[in-house]
Amino acid sequence: MPISIRKVVISEFGDVSKVNVEQSSIDPPKPGEVQVAPIFSGFSGADINMRRGLYPMQKKAPLTPGYCLAGRARTDGTHIRVGDLVACITVYDAEAELINVPEKYLIRVPNGVSPEAATALVLDWATAYGMVERAKVTHGQRVFIHGVSGAVGYATMKLCQLRGAVVYGTASERNHQVLRDQGAIPFVYTNKDWIKTMQELGGVHAVFDALGGESWEESYSILPPCSGGKEQGLLVAYGQNQSALSDTDASGGAVKPVAKLLFKNAKLFSNRSTCFFYVTRDQASFVPTVNTLFGMVRDGKIDVVIKNIWDMEDIKTAHQSWASSSGLGSNLIRISKE
């Protein structure tokens, strides 16, 4: 029989008035699925873009957002048992009291890793880890991160620092001191001083840029000079969150900017290259990455910092304040209390 639940619903695309908590129901899990009670759902630019109808290839409204979760299994699977703490990427539907998830996507969370940390690790940190691996960041390199105080930005900073890199980045000025305390060298994005400074240093070995559009062009310009330079530089683009952060129009879509970005790789004999990075739950590297991160938490190598936790009932506040809150780290929606 269907079970009564509450969940977040984006009724139609638009402003925060279109996102509400509603009463609904959920059917029993199908064969191969496990029913999970989320404790936390991740909250990111994907939620903002989905609410605005701008997320690439997204479902039509009405829909329930929630890209990832950590929660308790409520039914048995083949390997998952009732009560197991699990984490996964869902893309949709994690902002609900219950969700049916294909068991193959559930990753058991080990003892010593909290539900809060697991939620951040399964998407924010997994994305950061994959990007740092892709850029082959090594000791002594210079890296530049846009939105270094944000969820993925913070994780990327800490993983780069673990490898001995020097981290520069852009962030709101209200977060600069805490970033300096963390060993980063922050800049304000808007005055563009960071461009000249990085170029005068000879460029950076890797740029991680979640903004998109014009920012990707600027980030490309701070890679090592093309002429006479032996150092290689890589622009790792992801997210395309500029419109979500500034509440501007992004009706041009995501395909053209990414194509333009990747076309730069057609330049012969260039020491600059670009890539567009994203994480999916079907990637062969995904589960090993998450388990590696779980191990790093247990070993004390990384500390998963949470910036904000909003209750599901405060979902409008989460949408309104996502881009303006102070602090470092990941944002979560609390779905239930253990």
Rank of each mutant, 00 (worst) to 15 (best):
S243Q: 13
Y154V: 01
I309N: 05
S17P: 06
V304Q: 07
E217W: 00
S41D: 12
Q283H: 14
G140S: 11
A259K: 07
V290G: 09
L85K: 06
A266I: 11
G153P: 10
R272E: 14
I333T: 01
A135S: 13
H319D: 04
Q199Y: 10
P56C: 11
G300V: 08
V255P: 05
E116Q: 15
Y189D: 06
G77R: 01
S114E: 06
A266G: 14
D311N: 15
G83I: 12
I26H: 09
M296W: 14
L262W: 03
H139E: 14
D247T: 10
R174T: 06
P110R: 05
I195S: 09
I306M: 00
A323E: 15
T156Q: 00
D93R: 08
K196F: 05
G164Q: 11
R74I: 13
A126P: 09
E22V: 04
D209V: 01
R174S: 15
V8R: 00
R52P: 14
W125H: 02
H146V: 00
G45V: 12
L223H: 07
R6E: 12
T292Q: 11
E214A: 13
V16Y: 06
L121K: 00
I195C: 07
T197Q: 14
A61Q: 11
G45R: 06
I333Q: 01
E103H: 04
W125V: 01
S4F: 09
Y220P: 08
I10C: 09
S4C: 07
P225Q: 10
